[in-house]
Amino acid sequence: MDSTAIPSLGARDYKSDLKPVWCPGCGHFAVLSALTRTLAFLALPKHRIAVISGIGCSSRLPAYLDCYGFHGLHGRALPLATGLKAARPDLTVIVTGGDGDGFSIGGNHFLHACRRNLDLTYIVMDNQVYGMTKGQASPTTRPDWRRSRLTPEGTGMQRFKPAAIALAAGAGFIARGFAGDPNGLSHLLAQAIEYPGFAFVQVLSPCQTFRPESREWKTRVHPCAGAPARDPATAAQLMLTDDGMALGLLYAQVLPPFESQPRLEGDDLAAIEAEFAL
């Protein structure tokens, strides 16, 4: 890293001059601030960071940073980031998105990104609703939530348990933060970015517009009990039985990072072409 070669930056230096499209009071503002503070704390050079997203309110985040970014397809941020990180392991690659983007349309990629264990940081701003399409139920919405005209009787479906599913899929770093606790969130994000593998951070990020009841989350969140679990069985017990509001690093285990076959420089195409010569 050439971080010593650049003047130290403040959090504000990581922000672009674009004004977010988010509603007043949206939790995502706090996530953006926590992220820029983390990047400044880690003193990462802006041009060596790429933030990748899909589609949704939270997926607008990359454009609000003064880094490289890619605002791609709904649900496909993880594979795009996978291709980038695999091709350019020198970059710090962060993926941001929401619960619909990551757990519904992109659910398969979530599983396989956990398994693949590339050195990515995946931040999911979970507000338990589709905001950009005006308030439909997401995979983390309660089955009896009846405020959407699309599912007036509720979805009737079990809630998606992001942490437990990440654990089962093989993720080695699983944390839960809260937009109302920006300092705690910054701390988690710094650990996630520094973690040498796939780091998943679920951020409870209230939607004032479509889930006004989520203002009450600040009274319901609580720190997770004890140190982060290091064995999957303990972690599974915790994740499957908690109320989904426990904050902190839930599980941390260093796993073998993704490695393709060793990449060699120096061979040339002529040697490969020679295979075809008679």
Partner: peptide, 19 residues
């Protein structure tokens, strides 16, 4: 990289090329 599906594959190559 062997991708999990074709949706992933095409987005992976876009990511690489962006890089």
């Amino acid at each position: 990289i062997q991708a999990e599906d074709e949706l992933a594959a095409i987005n992976m190559v876009i990511g690489s090329s962006f890089g």
